[in-house]
Design a protein around this nucleic acid. Structure first.
Lengths: 352, 352
DNA sequence: TCGCCTTTTGGCAGCGCTGCCAATCCGGTT
DNA sequence: AACCGGATTGGCAGCGCTGCCAAAAGGCGA
């Protein structure tokens, strides 16, 4: 811990001519730059935003002054004064950071938004609609250019806020229902249905579902509904169902499959709420010496990285997570509300 | 795509008495609330922030007016006017969202910050120092209460910005070196050394390293340095080394181990740059029918969820990722700069 | 009832910037 | 030499809020 302290010795240390007194803590303002450059404030503003016309000379002098003073614009002031008074920020509310899906979503978003220099302000709701509402309000108070939510199910209060906020609203991931403004995602019901049809076509009949808490993860519930619907169309029904409390994880998937097989030894296929759970299931089979898919077939959801690297590639559905984020970003400049269904891809794999 | 459009029919729809004309797009301001409540602006401000004294009656009238008008405070204005003019926001620059480590870091951060109602503004540098600098500047322009960076290696410009910004700076994850202000993390060198000692103690001698690009991921480089140092202390040296281009992933780990074993069939242990790579290595062994750890031992890094669920729990090192985020958040209110080493935990597992 | 002290209240300047507008400059015309 | 149009420039109001201050309203003992 020793010399870490004196690192802050010259906190205010700026280089260059600092003749006049600079009260410590007071940051350089645009007015300082104007004085330093010997031009008016508006000129500095025009130069910095490259907006409106100014002479080469003015541009050079301002650039020089900015560098000399180490000026960092204050966007709080800029956004407040600017028209529409909305900030070059987007607010994002996601339910969790523990599930790779949402970081992936953010990844798509930030990659697209970085190009425009727009950062994300994030809020994590932990799958709690009340928290989502509180976060939406908090984020809107920063007057973001847009508010991005996850899924279509929200508190009435959240919807009211989003509508009244006067901002673009994009709901990501789920297209099964009506959105507030723009919706970018895929149909979770269709994913479930496609997964069921795949298993049925492969001849599996004694099929179970293994997932984490559905009341919390509405979209997993929609997949399951689609799955059961498609099973019913084939004259089949779920043989068993294991719902684990807590978030999805390989550990939960492993324990879940062990529990499921103890109760229903005759199952021939299991549909998991996602790849993490499925990986745990795969580990359970390895540990128990059960042949996959000979003895039991496994089917996941999401198409995560590891799925393809498994000794037997996991049968799953790849969801366009990055693409959703990217498209959501693209929608911000766009005007008309719409619903964009990006679809999904069933990966046959080797486990089902 | 059909009926998604008419969802926005009543975009401006606020409930309650809206007698006076409300220019569309103009949001409710504190002045509006004051008028509606029949009190002064300062009173509204005091009530909303519960700061200073006000009567029960004033409190009730303001609360009522806020609800009736659907008022959402404008924090751009609030922060600009408030003392210090710094926003209740923290800026966070992380190198990537593709590696679970960083979402985990954010998770710890947001969980601690949410309690205070402070959101994170994030920037993703993609491991590029220039980008990091640009992001730091962009984030500082929002006048955040603090700037959180990853690691200790930055451009001189980034350091200058951080110093001149007049904000708290916290560098997360790595403690091997000097920080700008506060540092929260663990020693990557020590992790590498502990891993090497573990392998040596278990009797492994023909040890290789398998990782992703070290020039990009400096901290992985530090772990490797510590690893080699500890090997040397035991009179050993790395038998082989495989550096994969691109980010770490199970697929890369699998291909890497296959390549490594093709070149050096006599290896008895492999140290991976992280658990993702190690999982891929494990899959490679499963696919090739190599006994783990009998034929070859595997050692990872991070202690991710799946490591414990594997048929043979992965031998790895658990890093305090959430805790780092939480402590970093705690440091924001704290005053004195310091270096906090949160340590790590070696998980013996069953693969090495 | 009056005076004194505490609580509560409203007015208003100003945070740093942008947008508007009027003033100024510059070069070529007449 | 006076004139004109476009390019360039600076001044200043005001974005919505907070902090400060002085004024108003209560509370209470004498």
């Amino acid at each position: 811990m020793g010399d870490a302290t004196d690192v802050i010795r010259d906190r205010a240390g700026r280089s260059g001519a600092m003749d006049e007194f600079q009260p410590p803590g007071r940051l350089v303002t645009l007015t300082d730059v104007a004085r330093e450059a010997g031009v008016g404030e508006s000129t500095v503003s025009r130069v910095l935003r490259n907006h409106g016309s100014y002479s080469k000379r003015a541009g050079a002098r301002v650039a020089e002054a900015v560098a000399r003073l180490g000026y960092v614009p204050n966007r709080l002031a800029g956004s407040l004064a600017g028209q529409g008074a909305s900030a070059r920020l987007v607010g994002v509310v996601i339910p969790s950071l523990a599930n790779v899906v949402f970081p992936d979503l953010l990844r798509g978003l930030t990659s697209a938004l970085d190009a425009e220099g727009i950062p994300c302000v994030i809020g994590v709701s932990e799958y709690d609609p009340d928290r989502e509402e509180a976060l939406a309000a908090a984020l809107l108070s920063w007057r973001p250019a847009a508010l991005l939510l996850t899924g279509l199910e929200h508190n009435p209060g959240t919807v009211a806020l989003a509508r009244a906020g006067g901002v673009r609203v994009v709901e990501m991931i789920d297209t099964d229902g009506d959105g507030i403004d723009t919706v970018v995602g895929f149909s979770n019901r269709a994913v479930g249905a496609a997964s069921a049809r795949h298993l049925v076509a492969r001849g599996y009949r004694r099929i179970a579902y293994l997932g984490h808490d559905l009341r919390i993860d509405v979209r997993a519930g929609k997949r399951l509904a689609g799955f059961e619907e498609a099973l019913a169309e084939a004259g089949l029904a779920l043989q068993a169902q294991e719902i684990r409390s807590g978030p999805s994880s390989p550990a939960s998937g492993r324990a879940g499959l062990e529990a499921l097989l103890a109760r229903h030894p005759d199952l021939d296929a299991v549909y998991f709420s996602n790849d993490d759970m499925a990986l745990g299931g795969y580990f359970a089979c390895l540990a128990a010496g059960l042949a996959v898919p000979g003895r039991i077939a496994l089917f996941g959801f999401n198409g995560l990285d590891f799925a393809a690297a498994m000794p037997q590639p996991l049968s799953t559905v790849r969801t366009p997570r990055l693409e959703i984020g990217r498209r959501a970003a693209a929608c911000l400049t766009d005007q008309s509300p719409k619903k964009i269904d990006l679809g999904f891809e069933l990966i046959e794999g080797a486990t089902a």
